[in-house]
Write a protein that binds this DNA or RNA. Structure first.
Lengths: 200, 200
DNA sequence: CCTACCGATCGGTAGG
DNA sequence: CCTACCGATCGGTAGG
C-alpha cells in the first residue's frame, strides 16, 4: 500500500466502474480485472473496497474546497464588484473541478452515501459547509439589493444541484468545452438571482 | 402476480429501499422483509428484481409525460403569454410530480441506468423527448426575443437537473411545501433565461 | 405464500 | 502479486 502510481491506477479504474455501475454494483474483482491483477491481489494495494471509495470521495471534497478557497482569497475584485462576481467565480470554479475529472466527480456526487456512517457524516458536513459559501454570497446580494427577493438557501441548492447535474451528461469529447459550460452556467446562475428589473 | 394492492406494497417498499441503498445495494430479501414475507415468496408477486425497478421507473416516466401533456394541452394562456408562462408551467408540473412521490422519483432519476439495456434505452429516449419539450419552450423564447441569447439545449439541461436535484434533499416533512418550492423554482428558472434588461 | 435448495458470486484472509 | 480458500449472501427455481 505504498506504491502511489499503482494505487492511483486502481482508484482511477474504480472511479470509472463506480460511475458506470455504482459502488455496490461494482465488485472487487471488477476493479482488479480493470488493472489486470487477480481479485485477491487488490488487497496488496488497498485495505478494503470502502477504502477505495473513500479515497476518491475525499480527494474530490478537498478539490472543491480548495477551488472555493482560491476564489475567496484570491479575487481582489470581490469587494469591488460584490456578490454577483463572487457567485459567478464560485460557479466557474465548481464547474472546473467537475469537468477536470468527471468520473471521480460523479462518484463524489452520486456515491458518497455508500460510505460507512462515520465517513458519510464527515462528507455530509463538509458538503454543508461548502454549500454555505454559495449561500453566503447570495445572502449578501439579497441584503444589499443586488439580487432579487429570493430564498438564499433554496437558491443555493437550486444552483448547486444544476451544476452537479453536469456529472450525468458531461463528456470531455462532447460538443461543449469546460470553458463554454462554465461561462454559460455562471450566466444562468447569476441571472436566476437577479432582481426583477435586471442588474443595476 | 394478479393482486394489485400487494404488488403496489412491494413497489412502494422497493422504492424506499432503492432510494436508500440503490438498486444493486438492495437484495430481494431486503424487499421481502419490508413487506413481511420470505425472500422466495416475493416471486409469487413479481417475476424478477428488474421487473420491480421497471414498474417504478416506467410509472414515473408516464407521470412526467402526462403532466407535461396537461400543460401543453390545457393552458389557453400559453399562446397569449408565450414561452415565459409555458416554461413556468412546465417547471411547476415537473416539481409537482417529483414531490408527489419522492421515493419513486428518486429511483427514476438515479437508478434508471440499472435497467437492462433494452429498457434503459427506451427510458433514455423518453427522457430525451421530455427534455425536448422544455427545450422547445426555450427555443421559442429565444427566437422571439423574450429570452436572452442562451443555448437552449444547455439551458434546458441546467434547469431540469436543478429540478431533479430535488430528489436528493426534498422531504415531505421539511420546512418547504411543494407549492413554495414549485413557485420558487419556476421563478428562478424563468429568471435564468431572461434577457439582460429584464422581461419586457 | 412456505420450505428447501441451486449455482454463482460476494468481500476478504492465509500463506506464500 | 499469486493460489487456495473462507463463510455469507446473491437472484432465482422446484414443488408444494
Amino acid at each position: 500500500m505504498v506504491e502511489t502510481t499503482r494505487r492511483r491506477e486502481i482508484e482511477s479504474a474504480a472511479s470509472t466502474l463506480f460511475r458506470e455501475r455504482g459502488y455496490s454494483g461494482t465488485s472487487v474483482r471488477d476493479i482488479a480485472r480493470a488493472v489486470d491483477i487477480q481479485g485477491a491481489s487488490l488487497y496488496a494495494h488497498v485495505s478494503s473496497k470502502q477504502d477505495v471509495l473513500w479515497s476518491i470521495v475525499e480527494r474530490m471534497a478537498s478539490r472543491f474546497e480548495a477551488a472555493a478557497d482560491v476564489v475567496e482569497a484570491g479575487d481582489p475584485g470581490a469587494l469591488v464588484f460584490g456578490p454577483r462576481v463572487q457567485l459567478m467565480s464560485l460557479v466557474r470554479a465548481h464547474v472546473r473541478v467537475l469537468t477536470d475529472d468527471v468520473e471521480a466527480a460523479r462518484v463524489f456526487v452520486r456515491e458518497w452515501q455508500a460510505l460507512e456512517a462515520g465517513r458519510r457524516d464527515s462528507i455530509a458536513s463538509r458538503r454543508d459547509a461548502y454549500e454555505a459559501r454559495f449561500r453566503a454570497a447570495i445572502d449578501i446580494g439579497v441584503e444589499i439589493g443586488a439580487f432579487g427577493d429570493i430564498d438564499p438557501a433554496l437558491t443555493a441548492t437550486y444552483i448547486l444541484t444544476a451544476l452537479n447535474g453536469l456529472v450525468s451528461w458531461y463528456s470531455p469529447t462532447g460538443r461543449l468545452s469546460p470553458r463554454t459550460i462554465a461561462e454559460a452556467y455562471a450566466d444562468l446562475s447569476v441571472r436566476a438571482v437577479q432582481p426583477p428589473g435586471g442588474p443595476s
